[in-house]
């Protein structure tokens, strides 16, 4: 099953990447995740591994994933090492001279060799997973734009303070 969701965020790719590329921040914006923990010493970059679980139906489903693509401000892709077969990708593209960012989140999952029941389970889980992907991007946009607004306000205040002093 392949699912995707997209959103355009009023912030530059660097600001979006600050959250997307931070392994400690994933639980802040991912919808449906119950666990996202680094496994091993490497925390970021290609080869970093995490134990990821998502609440689906009766239980938490997931496994061990490994980052296979790491291009700051552009691409973050992972694939599963154990557990449910899964591939995922965040694709970030700057718009309007990088004042905005188009974010695409893709997720493909299944279990090889599971046959008809595997197909049925993929279909049954799809509405929930699609809901999670949309919720994730909505929350990502909310947090990044909030942070962006806070940073801009801080800059304005600093400018005002500098004017008063001069």
């Amino acid at each position: 099953m392949r699912l995707r969701a997209e959103v355009t965020i009023d912030a530059p790719p660097a600001a979006v990447w600050a959250l997307v590329g931070d392994p400690r921040g994933q639980l802040r914006f991912w919808s449906g995740l119950t666990r996202y923990e680094p496994v091993g010493r490497r925390l970021t970059g290609v080869g970093a591994r995490y134990r990821v679980l998502m609440r689906l139906g009766s239980a938490d489903v997931g496994g061990l994933i490994e980052l296979v693509e790491w291009q700051p401000r552009a691409e973050l892709a992972w694939t599963s090492v154990s557990g449910v077969d899964m591939r995922g990708r965040f694709r970030l593209r700057g718009r309007d001279d990088d004042r905005r960012t188009h974010v695409e989140l893709r997720l493909a999952y299944g279990i090889a060799g599971a046959g008809l029941t595997g197909w049925l389970a993929e279909q049954a889980a799809a509405p929930t997973v699609r809901h999670y992907l949309r919720g994730t991007l909505t929350e990502l946009a909310r947090q990044v734009e909030h942070e962006q607004a806070r940073a801009e306000a801080e800059t304005r205040r600093a400018r005002l303070r500098a004017r008063r002093v001069s």
């Binding site: 139906g57 009766s58 239980a59 489903v61 029941t117 595997g118 049925l120 993929e122």
Partner: peptide, 19 residues
């Protein structure tokens, strides 16, 4: 592993399990 989807369906859809 190959039967987990079937078990998950049984647990989640048929029994509406909550573990």
């Amino acid at each position: 592993r190959e039967r987990l989807p079937g078990l998950w369906l049984l647990s989640s859809v048929y029994f509406r399990g909550d573990v």
